[in-house]
Design a protein around this nucleic acid. Sequence first.
DNA 1: CTTCCATACCTAGTTATACTAGGTATATGC
DNA 2: GCATATACCTAGTATAACTAGGTATGGAAG
Lengths: 108, 108
Amino acid sequence: MLKGHLDAIVLAALEAGPAHGYAIIEAIKTRSSSTFDLPEGTVYPALHRLEQAGLLASTWTTPAGGRRRRIYSLTKAGVAALADRRKAWGRFSHAVDMLLGGGRAWPA
Amino acid sequence: MLKGHLDAIVLAALEAGPAHGYAIIEAIKTRSSSTFDLPEGTVYPALHRLEQAGLLASTWTTPAGGRRRRIYSLTKAGVAALADRRKAWGRFSHAVDMLLGGGRAWPA
DNA sequence: CTTCCATACCTAGTTATACTAGGTATATGC
DNA sequence: GCATATACCTAGTATAACTAGGTATGGAAG
């Protein structure tokens, strides 16, 4: 369960350049060493949501002798949102690390 | 949004010893440097859920001249679950770090 | 040559979870 | 005596992730 962090992951996947949905899924799987093998039903709606929110833009392409693809790229707002999400992830994961790392006794 | 990780946080808060709900909320706030200032409506239902699942046990106490408190403690299953959740968090956060840390170009 | 798999997209509906917004009650400080 | 902090609770809401389907093409295997 990625709840709340999927957007950041998808945005980050597009940081290196535009890509289509299926490639994004593969990239997330590869770059997470298969920790995240996301079903399409998770990623496609997320892409639509992010486009709706103005963080992504898309165009249809049909490569020579290929299937139609929808290419997504980060908008300016998307780049900014990614930076925000990264900071939020840093704060979040640091806080959880503190809480889980613990094992200290209760403060008096 | 803590989705999916709240259980681990609550279980970890009880690792150092039994405590009541309100104290757990305070401890989470303190030990996360106020990153997590969880509303009661989040924590109490979570405690009930975890008790229902057999990961926590509770007893009522009334300290001298005090309000009634429900003291929660980890069960054996709760200790085991915490260990699992910790591992899951490690895998999860490491994977997200890889994905967000990136910025590399697409592999050919 | 056809059958299967990988590619590539989609959505309606379910589920689970965190949160909102209330409510109750006691002890303490001003 | 009134506000604040302590201490508990629950019904309802929002929404995100996932399940489980559906469509269609290209290439490989048989």
